[in-house]
Every structure is written in C-alpha cells, then in structure tokens.
Design a protein around this nucleic acid. Structure first.
Lengths: 364, 364
DNA sequence: AACGCTATTGAGACCGGTCTCTTTCTAAAT
DNA sequence: ATTTAGAAAGAGACCGGTCTCAATAGCGTT
C-alpha cells in the first residue's frame, strides 16, 4: 500500500527493518555492508530499502564510527591558479581514496585560518591539509595536530612544528635564478611579493612569515650578497596584495634613481601585473627590464616575449600532500616527514642576454 | 588534578557537566548557547569547558538539528579559471552566511556527478550548487530536489527541471559576437568547444548537452543562418577536451580547403591553445585568423595582440547562486527562478578590422 | 501567609546509525 | 544420537549533542 509512495521524511534503517520484517540490527548489517547475513534476508532488506527509497545518513554513521570521510583543506585563495591546481591534485587523490574535500579560503589571514580550522575540527574531518598564512602563528595548527587528526602542511612549512610538510625547493630555485640573472650582468634585481610586513618595508627574511616566500628571499638575499651586492634589502618589495598596490610598487621602483634591470615576481598574479604595466608604459621586456616569475602559469608561454619562469610541480604538491595524508589517516605513525619537490628553470625570452645587458659587469 | 591535562579522548558535554557539577542539559545549554542559564552557572561551565579543552562535535549537533552547516558544490573542474573564480564567489558568500563548502569535481562526467551528489546528500549538506555536466541526464538532480534540500544550478540550466538557475546570457552574447564578426566581413567562422558528442561530430544544437554551450551555439547558428551562411554545422567543432585533441581539431581546421577566417573559443582554456598553435605555426592574429574567446581570463589582455573576449560575470555567477541558495535554505519557498546575468563584449585586437578583411562581403 | 508566575535546573528521550552480547538454529564431527 | 562450532538474527547500549517536560526555586502580589 505505502510501498510505492516514499514517506515524507527520509526513511531510516528502522523503517527498512520494519518493512522487511527483520530487526534493526539485521537491516543495518545489510545496508552497512558489515557482519554476516543470509542471502534471503539480504534480498528482502534490499527490496525494502528500494521501496522506501532509503538513503543512508552519513552523519549518523560518522558519529559512531568516529570518521567522517572528509578532509579539510585550507588555502589562501582558490582563485589563484597556484592553489586551484594544487587543490585539483588534492581532490583527485581524495576522491580515489574515498574522501571528500571541505574547502576553505583563508584569504591569507591567520585569524580566518584559525576560525576555519576550528570549524573543520568541529566537523570532525579525518585529516587536514593547510597552507598556513603565517609560520609564526601556528598555535592553532598545534591544536589541530594535538587533536589526533593528521595534518599536512602544503607549500609552506614550519620547521619547529613537528608535522608532515610538502614544499618545493624554493630556496634553491631562488638561488639559481638569481645566479642566472647575475651571470647575465644584472646588478639591480628587485624581488616582488604579496607577503607584507607591518610597515610595508622589508628588513630581514625573518620579517616574512610565509614559509615558501621566506625561503625564496633567503636564497635571493644570500646569492646577491655573495655576488658583492649591497643594500639588497632595499630591492625586496613586499605588500603586492592587490593590483593597485602592485602597480604603485612597480611605479615607484621604475621611477627610482637606481631603477632595477630585472624583477623576480613571487607568483604569476604579480608577474601578470608587471607585464601589464610594462605594456602600458611601453617598457620593453627584456630590453628595458627583465622579468622572471615563480609558477609556470599557462599564459606565460604565450606572451610576447614569453616569460622565463620557475616551474613548480604544483599539481604534484597537492597530490603528494593528499597521498601522505591518506597514509596517515590509515594509521601510519612514523615520524613527521618533509618532502621537497624539485623545481625547474624554464628559460624563455623575458631575460636579457649577456650581450644585451646595458650595464657592464662589476660596475657597482 | 586532572584540570590541566586534557584527557586522551576529546571531552564531551557530559564531561564538562560533571566537571562543573551541573546536569548535562545545563552544560549543553551554556555550550550550545540556547535556553536560559544563570550567570553563575554559565561561568562555572565555561571554566570547566576551558579546563577540559572542550570542542563541540558539530557532527552530533547536526544529527539532532538536521542541518549540517555545509553546502555541496559540484563543478566540472576546479582547475579551470572559470570555475575557480565562480567557486571563490560561492565560498565568500557561504562563509559570510556561516556555511562551509564541500567541493567535488565531476570532470564533466555525468556518472561522477551522480556519485558525488549521492555522497553529498548522504553527508546531509544543507543545500547544493551544481554545474550539471549534461542537461539531458538530470534524474539525479531531480532526486536531490525531491530530497527537500534546495538546489541551485550554476551556468548551466535545465528548463524542464523546475529548479533555481543562475546563468549568463550566453545566447545573446554569442549572437552579438557572431554579428560583429559577420559585420567585419567574416564568412567562415568556426566555433570550438570542449563539449563532445558520441561520434565527435556536430549536427544540431540538440546534440550539445551542456546548457551554456548549447545556448551559445544556438545563437551562433541562427545568426550565421540569418546572414545567409550555409553548412554552418560543419563549422562547429566539438570534443576539444584535451590540449592534444584541441590541437588536432585546429590543425584539421586550418588545413581544410575552406579555412575559417575566425574562431570563437568556447572557453579561455581552448582560446589559449589556439593562441599557442598560431604562434607555433606563425599564423598571425588577427591578419590570418581572428580569435574571440568566452571568459575574460586574466591573460587575454596581455598577449600580442590582446584577445577580444566576452566578459562573463563569473564571480557574480557564483555569488548570486550562493545568495539564492542561502535564501532558500532560510526557508524561502517561492517558485523557481532563473537569473540571467549580462555579459559584455570586450573588443581588443584579435579580430581583423573591416578593411583588413581579405574576403569581400557577400561573396559566398 | 498563601498564591501565581517565571527563571533555572534536572531527567531522560531522541536523532540514525554501529556494534557488542546473546540467543537460536543449522550442520558437521565424534 | 550427542556434542559442538559457527552462522544468523535480535535486543539494546552507545556516539554526543538537542530538546521536551517536569520539578524546584525565587519573587512579587494581595
């Protein structure tokens, strides 16, 4: 009679059990796919479930099992191609392992990150992948780790926090590109990042709380110094958080008495802004200004000239982090690991050749 | 004694109640922020919670309240800038309204989408935003709607399914760009999309199951026909799903006896591939070939020449869908709405000017 | 002093699953 | 035929919250 009409409210194991004429426990065994049941009963229960349009309540299941089948992911900004690609890597692995992803943008704000973490922990995610906004503020991460749920840090590590980390070899990448620029005669190289300091000025690498960027700046800084360059800290520009601020910084840089001959952009979004501005002001790349960018964004190969970039294995970064997390969630309790993925310098045409360099080597 | 040492397993309201010397119900009232409690008891309970490092279990809360505080989002591919921007719009609104987002990639596959939907429904998301891979296969969406949880369709609508939809005015956009190309003397215009048909050939718009693309093709098709063009269906190319396939299609197109003088790319990923190939084969844009793309991706303004695009309000698409969903989740039960957001033709320099056109008007 | 009203608290059912413990039943082993 | 292992099914506790309902307490009123 009521077999064809699904009830108003979702039906439960108890409903199915009643319909099939068995106990709740037995119905649960069939529906949950555990324990042992006779074939006859199995068929009856399945038929009842079908008739009642039964849909399991994953929430209730999670509460008893203690596992929710979800992993929480906190990134700075999903709109940034770097993160969207990394998240793709994460979701692919997660899906394959039977997990779904809960995504939160921190907008690179430590407070947002902390709130997000609390929410995700409250929702009982089985594991977490976080790209921490600030390495200096990691109390909330420590809490997460302490909660017993595995945590993997993505792109930005914290050496002090004993937790799994997957990063690129940022420092080495920065060193090699800086060396390359120096070899081509550049003596005034600017480094431009979205990371900010309280007074928007750079003094020492310790001011930079975003791990990946700090390591790059350390590499840049020391390579410059080894080459005998002075006042390197004045060539490191922070706070390129919006297109407007980025433009203002670049403008000031260009109009300064000692105008840089090369710019290293810390991400593709900034590089794009530099490129736009150069075009707008008819600054020729690489003749007037050389440009190098971190992250091999799709468009960098298609501009005139194509942009020399440091290719990071972004998808693999996400993939590796997720794989590591899955292993931890399965019970691997080894000591925390730090995975460093290699980068690759892709030389295109946005860096001036040695003979084109307007400055002779060793001038200043 | 055990006040400073948090217990091994997470503490619960019952633990806090015991610690504070009150009943479970009272502790729950304080912790859950409902009902009425005396100030004295409130303080005592909070102190106990603090001491025990109490963290609410959102899962348990969800089970009784029936609401999980999450919204499920299914998109084709988060890596595609279109979707990552739309998702950013969704997450921003969701966060503001107190919801977190569970994200799933369907890889534009209806079966994946169905599985994802089942999972999300089982996890008891409070609402859903889906960008359906196929408008023809919507049984699973109907199920979702029937489950009582609000559903909003993003970018791709289904007229038959009575459900809220947020789309761009794709048809009108396609018409206007096609008209513009025709006005500039183009008589052989190719349309290139990632959507595919079983035999990889296009016959009628009804073959295309992705709503937004079908509407664009309808606009393109009818505008071409109105201009007296024949065999328009042969100029619509489907199945540009990977860079390799895209290249093969473009190559065939270029080598055909009647080579198109203009290409409309259905998304920025395809446009980028066209651009790359043109550069590789020294095909000049716009002199040899005009290019127009849907979606104003960041890089399109920075190429040489910059690409003429149809700017879609992508962030707003996500934002609007999320706002609508939030309203529904709050109990709005009006009839299903269909929101159409306007697009804008951004003319840059990838379309040949009339006087540069190699073909005189009305030739064929 | 008796009464009524409200603020505060406690007891316990409930959400929808899982899972342990028992009991019953079947069939192989001695 | 009797013993016994193991399969199959049921009863009911439990997860960690919410929420209803009843009991108690405190206060103003007449």
């Amino acid at each position: 009679m009521d077999k064809n009409a699904p009830p108003n409210s979702a039906s439960t194991v108890a409903d199915v059990a009643r319909e099939a004429g068995v106990s709740k426990a037995t119905a649960a065994r069939v529906l949950g796919g555990y324990g042992t049941v006779s074939e006859k009963v199995r068929v009856a229960v399945m038929a009842a479930a079908e008739a009642l349009d039964y849909r399991p309540n994953e929430l209730a299941r999670s509460m008893t099992t203690g596992r929710s089948g979800t992993i929480g992911v906190i990134v700075g900004d999903i709109e940034n191609p770097f993160f969207s690609l990394a998240v793709r890597g994460i979701t692919d692995v997660a899906r394959q392992a039977g997990f779904t992803v809960v995504l939160v943008n921190s907008s690179e704000d430590a407070r947002n990150e902390e709130a997000a973490l609390r929410t995700l922990l409250a929702k009982r995610v089985d594991g977490l992948i976080v790209s921490p906004a600030k390495e200096s503020e990691t109390d909330h991460l420590r809490d997460a780790a302490r909660s017993g749920r595995p945590l993997v840090l993505l792109d930005r590590g914290s050496e002090t926090l004993g937790v799994d980390t997957v990063v690129a070899n940022d420092r080495h990448a920065a060193e090699s590109i800086t060396r390359k620029l120096i070899a081509r005669g550049h003596r005034h190289i600017a480094y431009l990042t979205a990371c900010d300091t309280p007074d928007h000025h750079f003094r020492t690498p310790a001011d930079i709380h975003t791990g990946s960027v700090r390591r790059r700046i350390e590499g840049f800084f020391s390579t410059c110094q080894e080459a005998g360059m002075t006042d390197v800290e004045h060539n490191i520009h922070v706070g390129a958080v919006t297109p407007e601020r980025t433009r203002a910084i670049i403008m000031a840089m260009i109009e300064a008495p000692l105008r840089p001959t090369a710019i290293i952009a810390s991400d593709s979004v900034i590089a794009l802004e530099v490129f736009k501005l150069c075009r707008e002001f008819a600054i020729r790349i690489p003749d007037d200004l050389s440009l190098v960018s971190f992250h091999d964004a799709d468009w960098t190969s298609v501009t005139t000239p194509p942009v020399t970039v440091i290719r990071q294995p972004v998808y693999q970064l996400g993939e590796t982090a997720a794989r590591l997390l899955v292993r931890r969630m399965k019970g691997d309790v080894g000591p925390p690991t730090r995975t460093v993925l290699e980068t690759e310098l892709v030389e295109r045409a946005s860096v001036s050749m040695p003979d084109q360099s307007s400055e002779p080597p060793h001038r200043g």
